[in-house]
C-alpha cells in the first residue's frame, strides 16, 4: 500500500471508524467458496500480493494510530488485558526483536531501529516515540518489554510457552478480542483455551493443529484467516466489557444493518521465537461495515450464501443469532444467483 494518511477515528462511543476505498479493496475477505466450515487452512506466512495485508509479516495500515490509542484506553480501564507470567521474560525480548525488526525493515519511512551491540535505538515516528535501551535489561524501558512493544502494534498477541508436548497461553496483550479473555485463559493448555469452540474438536481439528504447531520452525511463520461479525466497529468486544457492547447485538434493524454490522476478519499468524522457543500467535483484526463490503457485489453475494448455509452451532458461538437473518434479508436484493469465481478476490 502507498503511504496511508493515518486516520483520526474512534472504535467506541461515537464510532467514527471508516475504511477508505483502498482499505476496502485490500480487506482480507475470508470466503473462497459459498459454504464455510472449520478447517486448519494454514499456509506459509510469506509475502504475497504487494499492497495486500499479506505483504509484510506485520501489517500496518491507515488505522494504526487510532488502534494503538484504543488499546491505550482499554489498558487504562483494565490493566489485566496484559499478562506475562514470570518464566516468559526471554519471550518478552523475542517479541521486542520480532516487532522492531519487522517494522523497521518493512516500513522504514515510519520506524527506525539502530543497534550497537546490545544498545538499541528505536524510533516510531507515527507515535512519536524515540527510545534508547539496552536489549535484555528491563530497567532501561519504561515498562515490561512485551507491554512496551505490543502497545505499538495493531492486533492482539498471545505468546505460548512450549513444554510437555503442549502449548500454554502464558503471555498476552489482548484488547481487541472477539469475546474471550486473556485474564481467564492465562496459563491454559492449547486444548483448554480452545475448549468453548464447537464442532472443531469433534472433527479432530485441535489434535492436528497442535501437532502441526509443535513442529513450527523459526524462520518459517504460518498464517490462517478466521472470522466473526461485530455490531458497531468496536475493537474491545471482551467478556469483561460485555455490558457495554452485548446489548448492541439486539439493536440491528433493516434500516441500520448496513452501517452497524461489521464483518470481522482475523489474520492469525504464528511465529516460532528464537531465544524462548515459545510461539507467538498474532490475531490481527480487520473490520468492514456491510455498506463498505457490498461495494463489491461478489463479496455481497458470497457473504449471503455463507451466512445462509452456516451451521447453527457456529452461528451461536460467533454470537450472530440475533441479527444473522436481518443481514441475509438485507443482502437478498443483491443476489442474482450467478455462479461466483472461487477465491477471495473482490472481483
Amino acid at each position: 500500500m502507498n503511504t496511508p494518511a493515518f486516520k483520526k477515528e474512534t472504535f467506541r462511543d461515537d464510532y467514527t471508524f471508516r475504511n477508505s476505498p483502498e482499505a476496502i479493496r485490500r480487506f482480507p475477505f475470508p470466503f473462497a467458496e459459498d459454504e464455510y466450515m472449520y478447517s486448519v487452512n494454514i499456509e506459509q506466512h510469506v509475502s504475497t500480493n504487494p499492497g495486500s495485508v499479506f505483504e509484510h509479516a506485520i501489517d500496518i495500515d491507515e488505522h494504526y494510530i487510532a488502534e494503538c490509542e484504543d488499546r491505550r484506553l482499554t489498558l487504562e480501564r483494565d490493566p489485566t488485558r496484559y499478562i506475562a507470567l514470570p518464566h516468559m521474560m526471554d519471550a518478552q525480548w523475542d517479541m521486542v526483536e520480532l516487532i522492531m525488526e519487522s517494522l523497521s525493515a518493512d516500513y522504514p519511512q515510519w520506524f527506525e531501529l539502530t543497534k550497537n551491540g546490545d544498545q538499541w535505538h528505536w524510533v516510531n515516528k507515527p507515535l512519536e516515540i524515540d527510545q534508547t535501551f539496552t536489549f535484555g535489561d528491563t530497567s532501561t524501558l519504561p515498562m515490561e518489554p512485551f507491554e512496551y512493544i505490543s502497545r505499538q502494534v495493531q492486533g492482539d498477541w498471545i505468546i505460548m510457552d512450549h513444554r510437555d508436548d503442549d502449548l500454554f497461553a502464558d503471555m498476552g496483550m489482548v484488547t481487541s478480542q472477539a469475546d474471550w479473555s486473556i485474564a481467564f485463559d492465562a496459563g491454559m493448555s492449547f486444548k483448554e483455551w480452545h475448549g468453548p469452540v464447537p464442532q472443531a474438536n469433534e472433527i479432530g481439528i485441535f489434535d492436528r493443529a497442535l501437532k502441526y504447531l509443535l513442529h513450527l520452525q523459526y524462520g518459517s511463520p504460518v498464517r490462517r484467516l478466521n472470522w466473526t461479525m461485530t455490531v458497531n466497529p468496536r475493537l474491545d468486544t471482551s467478556p469483561e466489557e460485555f455490558p457495554l457492547w452485548g446489548p448492541d447485538n439486539a439493536s440491528v434493524t433493516p434500516e441500520n444493518v448496513g452501517e452497524k454490522v461489521h464483518l470481522r476478519v482475523e489474520l492469525q499468524a504464528l511465529f516460532r521465537l528464537p531465544r524462548s522457543n515459545a510461539i507467538a500467535f498474532s490475531v490481527r483484526g480487520y473490520l468492514i461495515s456491510l455498506d463498505e463490503l457490498v461495494t463489491y457485489p461478489k463479496w455481497a453475494k458470497r457473504l449471503r450464501r455463507v451466512l445462509t448455509n452456516l451451521h447453527p452451532d457456529l452461528s451461536e458461538y460467533k454470537g450472530l443469532d440475533l441479527y444473522r437473518q436481518t443481514v441475509i434479508d438485507w443482502l437478498e436484493p443483491l443476489e442474482d444467483g450467478a455462479e461466483l469465481s472461487l477465491g477471495t478476490q473482490p472481483e
Partner: peptide, 10 residues
Amino acid sequence: YPVNLFSLSK
C-alpha cells in the same frame, strides 16, 4: 534453521 526438540523446562 535451528529446531529445538530438547528444550529446558522454563
